[in-house]
């Protein structure tokens, strides 16, 4: 557990700010980060909010879900339905793209993003 000490945890928002099985966007400094409340799996994820395909700040508004035999969690960009793994950030529909993912920690109803 030593690695966790290297991560800086920043308070993003409250758990009830993010809709169930959906996403919301937070502003951390100048960065826009999308946080996903995967209620169905009891999991939280965070990625950059920018979709690299057409440079749109929209990923937090996309639908989430999973794919494949291992139920890889993913988000679909609302613009052209490119999907990205919430774990690796790799685009699942177009090899050229990938997005940044962030660690998420929940404590006392608060969401912290690891930078």
């Amino acid at each position: 557990m030593e690695t966790t000490t290297a991560i800086e945890w920043i308070l993003a928002c409250h758990t009830n700010d993010v809709p169930e099985n959906g996403g919301a966007c937070v502003k951390l400094g100048e960065e826009q980060i999308a946080i996903y409340n995967f209620t169905r799996r009891g999991e939280w994820y965070a990625t950059q909010n920018l979709c690299p395909h057409k440079q749109q700040m929209v990923l937090s508004r996309g639908m989430i879900g999973s794919t494949g035999a291992h139920c890889e969690p993913k988000v679909a960009c609302p613009f052209h339905k490119n999907t990205f793994s919430l774990i690796s950030g790799q685009c699942l529909t177009n090899e050229e793209y990938s997005i940044k993912t962030y660690a998420v920690k929940i404590a006392d109803g608060k969401i912290f993003i690891g930078i």
Binding site: R41, M63, I64, T67
Partner: peptide, 19 residues
């Protein structure tokens, strides 16, 4: 939606079946 998925589907759903 979750009830429909529990009854008749599998996995966590996606951007195709949800809408």
């Amino acid at each position: 939606y979750d009830l429909v998925l529990d009854h008749f589907g599998k996995g966590d759903g996606c951007e195709v079946c949800k809408p």
